[in-house]
Amino acid sequence: MTQFPLSRRSALQLASAALVPALSSPAEAGSGSIRALAFDGFTIFDVRAVAAAVVSRFPEKGAALATAWMNKLFALSWLETSAGRYSGFEAVADAALAFSAASLHLSVTEAERRDLVTVFAQLPLWPDARPVLETMRRAGLRLAFLSNLSAPMLQAAMRANHLDDLMEPPLSTDRVHAFKPSPRAYAMGPDAFGLPREAIGFVAFGGWDALGATWFGYRTAWINRLGVPAEPLPPAPALTAPDLSAALRLAGI
């Protein structure tokens, strides 16, 4: 296979895009009955910081490592879900990073792997995140994360970005020991909010996540920040946009 050199910027974009095996085309949807919104963590936290940390630590092979790591991370999480197993995000992320480094013949110590996995708990906000969350809270909507990230990671990132006053306690897949797109993961929303799924909007970063949430029965906004292609399987999400405007429209704001 022919390989092409990448600029640092292109490498980061490709590494980040590995986090988003995409979905669907935009479609308007009525949303007057939405009373709560469940967010994938990466719709609010800027996951590009993970790829940037990898490239900073390993300048020569960082882009390739970041891409391979994200692909293997999702592959392992889906494998565990399909097999009815659950190791938790940190363990899967560490295993995926070790495998990816070995596949690239790159020496990465246990301490280096730990530091890179920890970046997931230190992600900054996307620029539009706080204004949108504040607008939603003023409108009376209930908000919470519903994420494959571990509970400690979500809590740390929420504290660091001062989101505790805007969002309810996070719904980590640690609660049900099943990564998304397991229906058990999406079912945390109705259980935690005490609302039927029809009254809950789901805000997805990855196309696969938007598809899984839509299959579960949520009205879903896909925040396609990286402009990746749509998933080939139906149905489409209710709304698609490159920013959180789709979530506002889903909520009728």
Rank of each mutant, 00 (worst) to 15 (best):
P131K: 07
V132G: 03
T135P: 00
R137F: 04
R137P: 04
R137H: 12
R137K: 15
A139Q: 06
A139S: 11
G140W: 02
R142C: 07
L143G: 04
L143C: 10
A144I: 01
F145I: 02
N148S: 15
L149D: 05
S150E: 02
P152V: 00
M153D: 00
M153G: 02
Q155H: 05
Q155N: 07
A156C: 00
A156M: 01
A156R: 14
M158Y: 02
A160G: 15
N161V: 03
L163E: 01
D164G: 08
D164C: 06
D164T: 14
D165V: 07
L166A: 04
L166P: 01
L166T: 02
M167W: 02
E168R: 12
E168Y: 10
P170G: 05
P170C: 03
P170L: 04
L171Q: 13
L171I: 09
S172T: 05
T173M: 15
T173Y: 08
R175A: 15
H177W: 06
F179M: 09
F179S: 10
F179D: 11
P181R: 13
S182T: 02
P183Q: 11
P183T: 08
R184E: 14
R184Q: 15
A185R: 01
A185V: 01
A185H: 03
Y186P: 03
A187V: 11
M188K: 04
P190T: 09
P190Y: 05
A192V: 12
F193M: 09
F193L: 10
G194E: 08
L195G: 09
R197C: 13
E198T: 15
E198F: 07
A199E: 14
A199L: 01
A199T: 01
I200A: 11
I200K: 06
G201I: 02
G201R: 05
V203A: 08
V203N: 03
F205G: 10
F205W: 10
F205L: 13
F205K: 08
G206T: 12
G206L: 10
G207P: 02
W208G: 01
D209Q: 10
D209C: 08
D209E: 14
A210Q: 11
A210D: 06
L211W: 14
L211S: 08
L211E: 07
T214F: 06
T214H: 14
W215G: 00
F216G: 02
G217Q: 09
G217M: 03
G217H: 03
T220I: 04
A221K: 08
A221H: 06
A221I: 10
W222L: 14
I223T: 08
I223Y: 06
N224L: 12
R225Q: 03
R225K: 02
R225I: 02
L226N: 13
G227H: 12
G227P: 12
G227E: 14
V228H: 13
